[in-house]
């Protein structure tokens, strides 16, 4: 009895030790070097600004940027949330349309032949050239920005999607034929799962694309958002504000990217981990 009571906390402690050792080992393998590089770069930056007497409007010290966040974080959050909303809507709409179209293009040759030239034309148009047109159509709302964001992530997802849907293993298709599977079943059970790695590759790329679309859109038609902040910082030569906006963009894009990676890992858990 006495031993049992004493034994349990020991076992728990052993488990805690093991899990903390696992976390430590994961940290050492994945984060230690990037974090060390970050610390060194920041230290060099801080030192160089002081040593070479670089003016703040050209390059502020990292410590000055950090300090400037205090008192401004509420306002920054407001702008970040707006950009995130525009980019996310653009991301969902652009990728959604691209994936439906990719499936249709991969399944029906006639759709591919009819639409591909127009898709290429659309791709070759610079988004900045389209922005005034989008403003005319959607007015000064968030929608021209959402449209710009959707347009910019549409093409890579479409191309990857078509490639993924078409890349199904021939023998798998023959197996499905031998089982008398319908076209819908072949799509659901072979082509769609098979295209998932391609689709996720595109979804990761388009995180950044949709952010670029939203920011470029805000440069042209917005009075709020991180893109708008960068323009405002430029007008007032407020380098600290510019850095705050850039850091917010980086944090937003990185968290979003990590979220997609986590979903990818869950959906594609059948793939061999690299």
């Amino acid at each position: 009895m006495h031993l049992a009571i004493r034994g349990r906390p020991k076992a728990q402690a052993r488990n805690t030790d093991r899990s903390s050792r696992r976390v430590l080992s994961w940290f050492n393998q994945n984060l230690l070097i990037p974090l060390a590089i970050f610390v060194v770069v920041i230290a060099l930056w801080e030192w160089a600004v002081v040593a070479f007497e670089i003016p703040q409007y050209t390059l502020p010290r990292p410590s000055a940027i950090w300090v400037s966040f205090s008192g401004e974080s509420g306002d920054l959050m407001h702008h970040t949330w707006l950009t995130a909303k525009e980019a996310l809507l653009g991301y969902l709409i652009g990728n959604g349309i691209a994936l439906v179209l990719a499936a249709l293009m991969a399944e029906f040759k006639i759709v591919e032949k009819s639409l591909y030239p127009y898709v290429l034309v659309l791709r070759s148009l610079p988004i900045v050239a389209l922005a005034p047109l989008l403003i005319i159509w959607f007015g000064f709302t968030i929608w021209p920005i959402v449209a710009a964001s959707a347009l910019i992530c549409f093409f890579p997802t479409l191309v990857n999607g078509v490639e993924g849907f078409k890349a199904a293993d021939t023998t798998m298709l023959e197996l499905m034929r031998s089982l008398n599977a319908s076209r819908t079943q072949v799509f659901q059970r072979v082509k769609l799962p098979n295209a998932m790695p391609y689709i996720f590759a595109a979804l990761k790329i388009s995180v950044v694309s949709s952010m670029i679309g939203a920011i470029v859109g805000e440069w042209i038609a917005a009075d709020a958002g991180l893109g708008f902040l960068t323009i405002q910082a430029n007008n007032f030569v407020d380098t600290l504000l510019l850095f705050r906006a850039i850091i917010a963009m980086a944090v937003l894009a990185l968290s979003w990217f990590l979220l997609v990676v986590i979903i990818e890992k869950r959906v594609l858990k059948w793939q061999t981990s690299s």
Binding site: D169, T171, S178, M196
Partner: peptide, 20 residues
């Protein structure tokens, strides 16, 4: 017979669906 699923096929590779 194929449509009635009366013919089984085993291919050169196992052709297992890796996601199942």
């Amino acid at each position: 017979m194929r449509k009635g699923r009366r013919v089984g096929f085993v291919f050169q590779n196992a052709v297992l669906f890796p996601w199942l």
